[in-house]
Amino acid sequence: MKSQKEIWRVILAVALCIVGVLHFAVPTPFIRIVPPQLPYPEALVYISGFFEILGGIGLLVPPVSRAAAWGLIALFIAVFPANINQAVNNIPIEGIPHNQLLYWFRLPFQAVFIAWAWVYTQPDEGKPRASIVPDRTEKTPMKQFDYSLDFKNIDFRQHPELYRVGRGEQGVLLVEPYKGEILPFWRFKTPEIARESSSKIYSLFLEYLDREDFVGADMARKFLQMGYTRSRRYANHKSGRKYQQNPQKLKSVAEQTAARKDILPLQADPLKAESAAIFLEKWMLAKINEKYLELLARHRQMYESYLVNAED
């Protein structure tokens, strides 16, 4: 099933990023298993860790995901001698049971990892896939989010035909009654609060799906996405402001362009970065949910596809 394939894509990507980070955080165990014939073992560990992180992220970026998968296949082959060296020379690694048979048993699984990555070298045929960037590959023109509606007086549960998915988080603070149902639970001040908030909003997402309420599910998805994007903004800028002046409040395109170049200095906040990662996980699960994708396709077909003139 398509959603299962995308769930496994996310699992592989997250696992690679975690292992890649470990190459930098605790490099010693990885250095120990580098074959002695190879020079600069510490540098090789850092390089392989960098490409594991890069490949994991690349799997979730549709324009480069297939290239990333091929790169990961090459990486899995390149690091295999280290696994062989560990098994042949019985090199212990802290945190892993010291058993040479276990090291030998690990070797065939490298083929499993290669096959796992190979799955994502194949064309997706335009089907939705897990992504950390907006998908711009829609082939059927869709209507943009309509900000001209009378949002104060429209009940979108009663009138789902008026709802437009738009891009990203468009309309997240406008569409009722869903804004009133979801916003009270939206918080990201600390990782603990973000975990509780994202879990609650994701449970609402599933409840909307159970009722086949696409608008509610999409609004919950947007709040999860906004939890990630806002947390990331505060992770990079403690004030929550990215630009010296808000480009959206400027009238001319030239002024907006200039304002977007005037970015405030980075002030990293690791707690907000952790909150962002928590929301990202739930957002990705929502995006690849099979029923959500089915309802999304149905909604777009019914209400958002432009009619094509048969004479064109």
Rank of each mutant, 00 (worst) to 15 (best):
K238G: 13
K152G: 10
N90K: 09
T190C: 04
M219F: 08
W116M: 03
Y147K: 12
Y46I: 02
L101M: 12
G71S: 13
V172I: 15
L293Q: 15
K139R: 15
F205R: 12
E169D: 02
L307W: 13
K127V: 01
S199G: 07
R157T: 05
I47D: 03
Y243N: 01
A220E: 05
W186T: 05
G55H: 00
G216W: 03
E274L: 12
F109V: 03
Y147M: 10
H23S: 02
I53V: 12
Y40N: 14
L250E: 10
F205K: 06
Q256S: 09
L296F: 11
K282H: 13
Q225V: 05
N85T: 10
I73G: 11
R106T: 10
D150E: 15
F214Q: 08
A78W: 15
P29D: 03
R136W: 08
P36C: 01
G240D: 08
R230M: 13
P63F: 07
R9F: 08
V172R: 10
L271I: 04
S3G: 11
F113L: 14
Y292I: 07
Q110R: 04
A273W: 05
A220R: 13
P247H: 04
L12M: 12
V165C: 09
L296Y: 14
V10F: 05
P27I: 06
E207V: 04
W116E: 03
N90R: 04
T140M: 11
S231R: 05
E255T: 06
G56A: 03
L250I: 02
E281G: 07
P35N: 11
A258M: 11
K272E: 14
E181K: 11
G55F: 00
S198H: 05
E94I: 14
L59R: 01
Y306G: 00
D135N: 13
K251N: 10
R167W: 10
Q158T: 15
V215N: 08
N246Q: 09
Q248C: 05
A235G: 03
L16S: 00
A220H: 12
P108G: 07
D262R: 15
D155K: 14
Y120R: 04
L285P: 01
Y103A: 11
T229Q: 08
Y306H: 11
S198C: 09
L174W: 11
V253Y: 12
H23R: 01
H159Q: 15
Q144R: 12
A115K: 08
F80N: 06
L102M: 14
V175H: 03
R157I: 06
K139E: 15
P123E: 12
P141E: 02
K152V: 01
L54V: 15
M226G: 02
I193K: 09
A194F: 01
L102H: 14
I11N: 02
R260D: 00
F113W: 15
N246F: 04
H98V: 10
F223K: 03
E212C: 07
R241W: 07
A276I: 01
E290F: 06
D218T: 04
Q37V: 14
A217I: 07
I11Q: 02
L38Y: 15
P270G: 05
N85H: 13
Y103P: 07
V175Y: 06
P160S: 08
Y228Q: 09
I288R: 08
T229A: 03
K139S: 14
